[in-house]
């Protein structure tokens, strides 16, 4: 068994993605994962005109367009996540993003009327998904897969590792880290969680994980990048940072977004109502809240105390 991992990294889905793969077919698996990441990047990037997402958006209010299986799958799941988060995560957020983009590029911010207008176009229920056919009900609507693409990619990567008989692996997409099985020596992978109040190199602690995704999102490190579909403004809740730990990678990113929008109370209630979801949340007062399932797998930096939620 190879004890030296095959490692590589590429830029895709808006971030640097690196892999550390152990196993006889490590290189083959890693290459296939990279190919798929680049394919998803091309299809779903908000910045490539004429791609799949663009095709769906420009025909909003018109007839359905034919799309591939992966796009159908990710949009179906996105729609379901819209339901279960009560719209806190909404894949049809594009009109709001465009509005903010437009104003900020002029050095201004959108006014109340502009936001009301844009918000009225945001509704995941207007996303109609058929058999590889997708449409948006009203003109001006649009989808943005930024909040779910990495989760989908992680699930896809996991299947590729399985198909290649990979033994151990770590896929690092920045905010989203996928652990495949354990470390080669059988111990759990150690994944650090960034301190939401400070910069990159400061951690609040780490979690010991195997076979799951660790997804972290925060308000302060990328201020304003999560919009509240309800107000149209950047999310401004009492959640400084949230980490979701789950074997269901595709749900991780969306739930992290939803928790930031919903705030500590509703956000953690949501997490606790769903199966297979563990969390670590840091509120704006700096208090750390951990789900019961994660408490034993968590190691905080000295001095951190946690509140455990059953």
């Amino acid at each position: 068994m190879r004890t030296v991992p095959y490692t590589c990294s590429i830029n895709a889905l808006g971030t640097n993605i690196s892999q550390r793969v152990y196993g006889i077919n490590a290189e083959a698996a890693a290459r296939q994962v990279n190919e798929q990441l680049l394919r998803l990047n091309y299809m779903w990037s908000p910045a490539i005109s004429g791609n799949v997402v663009d095709g769906i958006n420009i025909t909003a209010g018109g007839p359905p367009v034919c799309v591939d299986k992966d796009t159908t799958e990710v949009l179906s799941r996105a729609r379901q996540l819209g339901e279960c988060t009560n719209g806190a995560f909404d894949v049809t957020i594009e009109p709001l993003i465009r509005t903010w983009q437009g104003f900020l590029s002029q050095g201004q911010t959108p006014g109340q009327q502009d936001l009301i207008q844009a918000r009225s176009l945001v509704d995941f229920r207007d996303l109609c998904i058929g058999d590889c056919q997708v449409s948006l009900s009203r003109p001006g609507q649009g989808i943005n897969l930024g909040g779910i693409a990495k989760g989908f990619a992680a699930d896809m990567a996991r299947k590729i590792y399985e198909n290649h008989g990979i033994r151990y692996c770590l896929l690092n997409m920045g905010g989203h880290v996928l652990s495949f099985n354990t470390r080669p020596d059988g111990s759990d992978w150690k994944v650090g969680i960034t301190n939401p109040f400070s910069c990159e190199d400061e951690l609040v602690g780490y979690v010991e994980v195997a076979s799951c995704s660790v997804v972290t999102s925060g308000q302060y490190r990328q201020p304003g990048h999560i919009l509240d579909p309800g107000t149209g403004q950047p999310a401004d809740s009492d959640v400084a940072g949230i980490t979701i730990v789950t074997p269901r990678s595709v749900d991780g990113d969306a739930l992290a977004t939803a928790v930031i929008v919903l705030g500590m109370h509703k956000g953690l209630l949501l997490c606790r109502s769903l199966p297979d979801i563990d969390f670590l949340a840091v509120d704006t007062q700096g208090r750390v809240h951990v789900s019961a399932g994660l408490a034993s797998r968590w190691r905080g930096v000295p001095g951190t105390s946690i509140q455990i939620h059953q």
Binding site: G174, G175, V177, V191, T194, E200, D201, R221
Partner: peptide
């Protein structure tokens, strides 16, 4: 971070920053 070149003995860090 730049001067001290802190290293953390972990496998990966979840949480990206742009600033």
């Amino acid at each position: 971070a730049i001067i001290a070149n802190q290293s953390v003995q972990i496998d990966a860090v979840s949480g990206a920053t742009v600033s």
